[in-house]
């Protein structure tokens, strides 16, 4: 189980080159009904050649421990 969200601030164009930078912004542990779980929060920024951010994404990955 997980979730994902994307925000687009500018359109992406064919022929343009984009650079994705991802980083882990948080890791934490919680105990749910099925036992302990780890949450890994990743954020990815997509930039064009002028280094303008065109989109950001946030991913939540849940791992049963």
């Amino acid at each position: 189980m997980a979730s994902r969200s994307s925000n687009c601030s500018a359109p992406c164009s064919p022929g343009e080159t984009y650079l994705c930078r991802a980083r882990i912004v948080d890791i934490y542990q919680k105990t749910g009904r099925s036992g302990p779980m780890a949450f890994v929060i990743r954020e990815t920024a997509i930039a064009d050649r002028a280094n303008e951010i065109v989109a950001t994404m946030r991913h939540v990955t849940i791992i049963r421990l």
């Binding site: 997980a2 994307s6 925000n7 687009c8």
Partner: peptide, 12 residues
């Protein structure tokens, strides 16, 4: 096309 500004989902 080109209208989506934000999409966020939970995988249930």
């Amino acid at each position: 096309a080109g209208t989506v500004r934000k999409l966020a989902v939970r995988f249930a």
